[in-house]
Design a protein around this nucleic acid. Structure first.
Lengths: 223, 223, 223, 223
DNA sequence: TATGAATGAGTTTTCATTCAT
DNA sequence: CATGAATGAAAACTCATTCAT
């Protein structure tokens, strides 16, 4: 008859009088689940409250409007992701190994918390308004965290002034590549995070190495 | 000041008795505009009909339901994009130049038809159902069109069997990079399409070259 | 390539310049068909115009609003039905044979023009407003035409004053029985109109005969 | 003038916070009323919600779609009707008295709950789909309940093989007669249910008695 | 604390009906 | 005579949100 022991996820009997923090977590968990399944607009507060095993007014009392709720999902999951990556990086290793470990952590996170990743990557952009920028900021922070190693190398060599090189632009490209590969990986769970990270390293690192050496590709003739 | 000749774009006064084909184009134009601004769910048929300068029943008569309408937007814009890229490619040039020209066309298209690009890239995935796969298919076709040159080179060299190389995975990464850079470029209109294409070429081409040569990055120590 | 020879019903090529009377008949035919299939409310002017092979404005020009159109369908088919019954009656025969022949004609009509009957019986009542009374009037006329023979016999015998007998009420019951049997017959096309008429004759005639003879059923004890 | 005790029927001021069961009954009452007045198609959910003194969303939450709602009206009223009839029948009496009492109960019900009857009889057939058959089934059950006494008598006597007799067909006719007389009675409220029942008994019972005795009406000459 | 009851405001969609040609 | 083009008006249905208990 214990109401705690078995599954904290969804108890059909109304769980009662839980401390606020617990309730909030329950609700956020449910929200992430539902948002990731249906997207922001198609997700209904009803379903979220069902999944959370909590009445709707409670959601409003604790976490505010639907938009608020979504925002908190986003922020919580983004924080988790960044922490996961940060935790994966070993600061003592050489830059390339650091990058590789960061990527591995990233892909491990995506595999383990698909829903978190889906909400962050796919759904967060569909809400328009402040979320887009918020997400963009996080992307930026993420990429800077990961790519600083690489990009700084390029800039350090004085490539910053050449039209063929741009830290910011290449960063964006890099994140896109990593994200896109993450999506691909969701459909290919048999590919390990180490392999995924290696693919990306090979695509990028070798190219950057050349760039750093001054080897630059140019169109052979103007237009 | 003639009301017929010049401003066929959007006359606030009910334009009347136009042939069906013209109306359909008007409506699709409006729909792309509105969908790109608000996304599928937040876009309302009311706003689309307003922007199109046409009553709602016409939309339903000519283009069908909201979902149908969206589908036709997607297909039209996707076709446009693919054609733009294809048109930009000069088949006589060497592979790298072909790729570069393809990318330039892509970035030119994105800059010129931001809304088309937004609908295709950002909004199409949020509808769920058949659209996601349809778009994914187009992405696949696009990447194959552009990346075949590169990837095939890698596989030709027998790299296909190495864990560090995967045509499909790298393709996904590549498209992601290109797309992500396109988004970045939307906020940096001063960067020309040629430069954008060059950035990507340098990131990718040099890396691939090394791959093709057999140079492969590996983590120096296990785990 | 003749546009007349094959089927007058529905020529895919726009039939042109037909005299008004013909057009009106075409339209009414189509309307009866569609109304009988879907009922008044679910029938759409679009479908009627399609089936009629005529554009919608034409319907409005020739036959007025949807309600007008329906009214004319009702009236035309009702007239047809009454005429069919009248034609079947042989005035020289004795009353019971007249009744039998009238019923036969009725059931023959129902079998042959199911759609007409459906519109009259099932759909006409769903429209509320003047149609209900109009149809009721026709029923009344019909029943009087057919049942006068029977009822008059009863009244003639002085039964009119007894609570157990009522011309009007029994007429209503009789029509109901005949109609209901007609509906039943639609699902049993193998039962001939002669047999149907005989069933009703037996149910009714024998009972009436008794009534006329003064034999009356009464509840054996009050309440 | 208390607003709670007496007039629970329809308070124009929003009655608030009632238990679900009560609301459901209110809504069904309103729905029967409106459906009976306008028919299924012309009835609008708006009007029903107005009459019920409840907002539209409640209707959908509690009773489902318009079609669901209609179905529940039909079922509730049909059940009521059948129960009323069953309650009226005294199983100890001889068959003819049972029938008479059943008919009385029927006519009493129709008089007292005109709207219920209207919905069942007139409107239920216009919706097409499953309702028509559902209603038909109930009619069948009703007739079997009432007419079994009579018809079985006929079949028992071996009349089943004669073309002039058909249990099923005659049952259909009988229901039609009873229903039709019920409609007639709605316009003649001064005729008591006992009298109505007697009329039908005389029409039917005497006729059936003759049938059972082997007296059969036949057309005197072929065709 | 926690919730069943309740709704305002908005959405997509359909249809009878009428111009302008 | 005949029609493609066009729409006003309304219907069913949904959902985020808030009371009252």
């Amino acid at each position: 008859m214990s109401e705690e022991s078995a599954g904290e996820q969804r108890s059909p009997e109304r769980a009662r009088r839980l401390p606020r923090a617990v309730r909030e977590r329950q609700i956020l968990d449910a929200a992430v689940q539902v948002f990731s399944r249906h997207g922001y607009h198609s997700a209904s507060m009803d379903e979220i409250s069902d999944v959370a095993g909590v009445s709707k007014p409670m959601i409003y009392t604790y976490l505010g409007s639907k938009e608020d709720l979504f925002g908190q999902c986003i922020r919580r999951e983004a924080t988790r992701l960044l922490e996961a990556i940060q935790d994966g990086i070993k600061p003592d290793l050489p830059p390339d190994m650091q990058l590789w470990h960061g990527l591995r952590s990233f892909y491990r996170f995506v595999a383990e918390y698909r829903e978190s990743w889906t909400v962050l990557h796919r759904q967060a952009l569909t809400v328009g308004g402040s979320f887009a920028t918020e997400i963009t900021d996080m992307r930026t922070r993420a990429i800077e965290l990961v790519a600083a190693l690489v990009v700084s190398a390029g800039t350090r060599k004085g490539l910053g002034e050449q039209a063929e090189f741009s830290g910011a632009g290449l960063s964006a490209a890099l994140v896109g590549a990593a994200e896109s590969l993450a999506d691909w990986a969701l459909d290919h769970p048999d590919v390990s995070d180490g392999v995924l990270a290696s693919w990306l390293m090979n695509l990028v690192w070798l190219g950057f190495n050349d760039l750093v050496e001054g080897e630059i590709w140019k169109p052979s003739t103007a237009e």
